[in-house]
Design a protein around this nucleic acid. Sequence first.
DNA 1: CTAAAATTTTAGCGATTGCTACAATTCTGT
DNA 2: ACAGAATTGTAGCAATCGCTAAAATTTTAG
Lengths: 138, 138
Amino acid sequence: MAKATNISEPHRRTRRDHASETAEDYVEAVADILAWRPKCRVTDLAKRFAVSHVTVNRIVERLQKEGLLVTRPYQPIELTHKGKRLASKCRERHEIVRCFLLAIGIDEETAAIDAEGIEHHVSPRTLRRFRELAGMDS
Amino acid sequence: MAKATNISEPHRRTRRDHASETAEDYVEAVADILAWRPKCRVTDLAKRFAVSHVTVNRIVERLQKEGLLVTRPYQPIELTHKGKRLASKCRERHEIVRCFLLAIGIDEETAAIDAEGIEHHVSPRTLRRFRELAGMDS
DNA sequence: CTAAAATTTTAGCGATTGCTACAATTCTGT
DNA sequence: ACAGAATTGTAGCAATCGCTAAAATTTTAG
């Protein structure tokens, strides 16, 4: 067992980047919304995340600066190539986690909820194992 | 309190409370440190989380207001009864997640890292299943 | 077309978590 | 005991994510 003062290894990862998680959640949401509607608006995201449209507005502004999405004043939101790639990656990871939870016997609703929280914290190695155990190997 | 947006079940959980996670991480760390040393100091926590002592100081101040721990100026940190209970709960949950990851074939180091991130996002139901599959049933 | 409704933006507040720089206190070695 | 080292506290900055209120713009309905 690690000594109490043994800092780095585990916690380098636990020092999570909340801003990155938000970015992932948002591009994933935008991609999901655009798969069902012609346009993604601030209001759609506000409803989805149950926050005010003002909060969404500011986050969208930040993500645009980071090159993940594009929008103009009073116009709908679109993903950049970079945003689409990130969204795709997140969606796949999200699905693997969700299907893994289903595979070990978690009910649909709980799996959906837990996958949302867990997805950002699964390393590539663990993700591969999840995929195997979920029977998603191609 | 609840802004009745009645949004998708999954996101009620994904709207995570970062402050609560920090509280859990800190009481868990304090308990762990006190299991190895006679006293827990601001510096110990700063090293563990790889943040400045100033950041730790402010968080400790907040947690004291919340009744999770106690400290006086220039004195070491101790957990309240409430803090000990929370720490115990978190440690158990943490161990279940870690052992579960080991049980499905994840290596020790990866399991330790991923458990740190995942622990805050596992529902009671999923946690029970993890414990079963880890062979930790009493 | 025009007025109302919906949507988006801006302004400004607070909480939380990060930092550096510096002051205050406690601990330690001689 | 006392000086220097270590530790802790304070002041003040920034970034992120919440909010309300109110202004600006676009969309919709009559």
